[in-house]
Amino acid sequence: MNSLSSILDNNQFNLVYNILSLGIASMVFTSIFLFVARERVAPRYRMAVMISGTVTAIAAYHYFRMFDSFNHAFAGAEGNPDLYNVGYRYVDWFLTVPLLLVETVAVLALARAAQRSMLNRLVPAAAAMIALGYPGDAKLDIFGIAPSVWGLLSTLPFLYILYVLFIELGKSLERQSAEVRKKISTLRLVLLATWGVYPISFIFNMNSTGFDPAGFVAREVGYSIADILAKCLFGLIIFSIARIKSAEDDAEFAKNEFRD
Rank of each mutant, 00 (worst) to 15 (best):
Q176Y: 00
D227V: 05
I32H: 08
G196K: 09
I184F: 04
A60P: 06
S69H: 01
A48Y: 02
E248R: 04
I241L: 09
N85W: 09
P98R: 07
L99F: 12
M50K: 09
V190N: 14
L189T: 14
W93Y: 10
I24R: 12
K255Q: 14
A247I: 00
A25N: 00
K245H: 02
L162I: 13
F216A: 03
G23F: 02
Y84D: 03
V28L: 12
D9A: 07
I130V: 15
A111D: 09
M66W: 02
Y17Q: 05
T96H: 06
I241S: 09
M1S: 12
E248I: 01
I24Y: 09
A242I: 04
P98W: 03
R259Q: 13
S208T: 06
R65N: 13
Y160Q: 04
T194E: 05
L192N: 10
F94A: 09
L159C: 08
T96Q: 05
S21A: 15
H72M: 11
E257S: 14
F33N: 11
Q12C: 09
G76K: 06
P81T: 01
K231F: 12
F64H: 11
F202L: 07
D227K: 01
A128P: 07
L8A: 02
D141R: 12
N71Y: 10
L122W: 07
N207I: 00
L8N: 05
